[in-house]
Design a protein around this nucleic acid. Structure first.
Length: 597
RNA sequence: CGGGGCGUGGCGCAGCCUGGUAGCGCAAUUGCUUUGGGAGCAAUGGGCCGGAGGUUCAAAUCCUCUCGCCCCGACCA
């Protein structure tokens, strides 16, 4: 419980961490100005508050203050993972290249996989993820159905040589990830494991005091397999998502289904060619004809390459809609579609952009579901300055396939309940995924079933971006003055600001309260620097410590301290003699309320 | 990888176009005054101008090459 003699004693908790620190002997270098290389708010604030420093592109040092928050988060994650029955392990960063050849990812992974050779000229990789290594453990150690189910997790450093690291901890090359892997005897068991992790993740992010959404994610054209993403809601988030206030349906924008949306048929009538000069885009044409944009069926030419060479596909969709490229990709059986340039489209269709027609088209035509439902629409005439009205999908032109292809827009009806959809933005902090037998098959991980037969282990994998979650928390919780930590993640729960440390009465009162709080286990930062009040206030706000106690002559004259809540700005005077109990109570309460304060 | 931008004391920047003494603000150090929202005065220290090569009597400045970093596009925790 004590430390070296030449320093005032520091209290230590059960894990060996300090409960209280003095700013004068800490390393918390704060910056008045934004760092020049930071773009997003969390990155700026983490650097300014002295939580992290950049070492190299996408590679960061954690300073003491940042590390404390990281520990808090890791502790929350650990406790939930352990509660769910998962077992913690620690796997190496450096892995043999041969293992990656065995799984086929040595070839598949691409330049994002950091490869190097050791002194014996053996291929090595710095692990970007650990499916290979855990599966290797399992195939060696698991023999029988009696050994299953099992869930192994670790909190560990990964390296992915991203093309473009950015936004500080949000997208680093080296980053800390919690990754868990479940092993089950069959699909049903894997399903149970998946549900457990799903619930653990909800608990983790709730306990962090974060507002989040769980969304269905795109898992490619693999049938049966599915995945969910955990998104921290923040306007500055990189990912778009849809959410239904009616039934709770939520999905990544890429994945969001649409079953219906407003689209209006063009006036019925015979197919008529009309003169439409200079109407090369939808808004212009709609205005020219005085019809809604949705009555225009726009035809867009895509190129998709497979081993049989490039194929061209004409996509027909109502004029007021954007095409969702992921949906289109799935509709094309996994081939990546690329929109043809106007020049390329003109070469293939023989007409300039804006007048491309599905009528008599030689290429495959696939239609968005709503365009297929319209009784008539306006389409290009395949001839400059002319369109057709009254074109009947499937009658006047062929349709080779109908799919849900449109991007969801705000207020579109929910695919589950029909209520208007709301668009949000989020930061992906966690991902749960059903793997199936991909890796157990590649690496030969089997077990003996009760009937004596050998079966492949069914796997799932589950990730949380630890550093990213910290950044996301700041992205969601900050103001003009700095970070606003939720109690659960704050590096310290309380900061003490004695305004004049030269004044004996003030410094004694501060030291006394510091002792009392740390004795109670309240993590406290004492700003004992001989600085002007303004400096201390600014730093305290920047650091985002939830509770700020100001100790001044004025207050002490009445036997009181001033208590200010960082989040609300609410100020109360508290009596000196009860201060530690009151503060302890507030901290405890905040943690019980799921980390919010 | 393609497109754009930036490298000048610890941090943020000016100087470069039009070559000739390296400058400003903040921070740091010392002293005095100050003490409820980033104080004032005075003094001090600190810079192979990212690196290499070239042009020139002379290069932070012009030219070539290189390295690093940031921003915009396809992947991901």
């Amino acid at each position: 419980m004590t430390t070296n003699d030449d320093q005032k004693s520091l209290k230590i908790n059960a894990w060996g961490e300090t409960i209280g620190e003095r700013v004068s002997t800490y390393l918390s270098p704060t910056l008045k100005e934004d760092p020049a290389d930071a773009e997003v708010i969390s990155h700026k604030l983490m650097v300014r508050a002295g939580l992290i420093r950049k070492l190299s592109a996408g590679i960061y040092n954690y300073l003491p203050m940042g590390l404390r928050s990281l520990w808090k988060l890791e502790r929350i994650i650990r406790s939930e993972m352990n509660r769910s029955g998962a077992k913690e392990i620690l796997l190496p960063c450096v892995q043999p290249g041969d293992l990656w050849r065995e799984s086929g990812r040595w070839e598949q992974y691409g330049p994002e996989l950091l490869r190097f050779k050791d002194r014996h000229d053996h291929d090595c990789v710095f692990g970007p993820t650990h499916e290979e290594v855990v599966t290797d453990i399992i195939r060696r150690e698991i023999r029988s159905f009696r050994d299953l189910p099992l869930n192994l997790y670790q909190i560990q450093t990964k390296f992915r040589d991203e093309i473009r690291p950015r936004f500080g901890l949000m997208r680093g090359r080296e980053f800390i990830m919690k990754d868990a892997y479940s092993f089950d005897v069959d699909d049903q068991g894997a399903e149970v494991a998946y549900r457990k992790m799903y619930r653990s993740y909800e608990n983790i992010f709730r306990n962090c005091g974060l507002q989040f959404a769980v969304v269905e994610a795109d898992s490619g054209p693999i049938g049966g397999s599915y995945s969910h993403e955990f998104m921290v809601l923040a306007d500055t988030g990189e990912d778009a998502l849809v959410s239904c206030p009616g039934c709770g349906y939520a999905a990544n924008m890429e994945k969001a289904e649409l079953t219906d949306y407003p689209a209006q048929s063009a006036p019925a009538g015979p197919l008529t060619k009309i003169h439409t000069p200079n109407c090369t885009d939808v808004p212009t044409l709609a205005r020219f004809l005085n019809i809604p944009e949705s009555s225009i069926l726009k035809s867009m030419l895509f190129e998709a390459s497979s081993e049989n060479g490039p194929e061209h596909v004409l996509v027909v969709i109502p004029g007021n809609r954007e095409i969702n490229l992921i949906k289109l990709k799935n509709a094309l059986g996994g081939l990546t579609p690329v929109l043809c340039t106007p020049q390329a489209a003109e070469e293939i269709t023989g007409v300039i952009k804006g007048y491309v027609t599905p009528l008599g088209a030689k290429v495959r035509i696939i239609a968005d579901q709503m365009s297929a439902k319209l009784t008539a629409g306006v389409v290009g005439a395949g001839e400059k300055d002319y369109h057709f009205t009254g074109a009947r999908p499937g009658v006047d032109f062929k349709i080779d396939g109908v799919f849900d292809l449109a991007q969801t827009q705000a207020a579109d009806p929910c695919p589950r309940c029909g209520a208007p959809i709301v668009l949000k933005r989020g930061i992906e902090v966690g991902h749960v995924f059903k793997l199936g037998t991909k890796y157990s098959k590649a690496l030969g991980s089997t077990f003996t079933a009760p009937d004596g037969s050998d079966k492949l282990i069914v796997m799932g994998c589950y990730g949380i971006g630890v550093g990213r979650t910290l950044a996301a928390s700041i992205e969601q919780n900050h103001d003009r003055d700095g970070i606003i930590w939720p109690m659960a993640l704050a590096p310290f729960q309380v900061i003490l600001l004695p305004l004049e440390v030269q004044n004996e009465q003030i410094s004694t009162a501060a030291e006394t309260l510091f002792d009392q709080l740390t004795e109670l286990g309240v993590e406290t930062l004492l700003d004992d620097r001989d600085l002007r009040p303004g400096n201390k206030f600014k730093d305290a706000d920047l650091l985002g410590i939830p509770i700020k106690i100001t100790i001044s002559k004025k207050g002490l004259a009445n036997g009181q301290f001033e208590l200010k809540h960082r989040r609300t700005g609410e100020v109360v005077m508290i009596p000196e003699k009860d201060a530690s109990k009151i503060i302890f109570g507030l901290c405890t309460l905040a943690l019980q309320k799921g980390g919010q304060n």
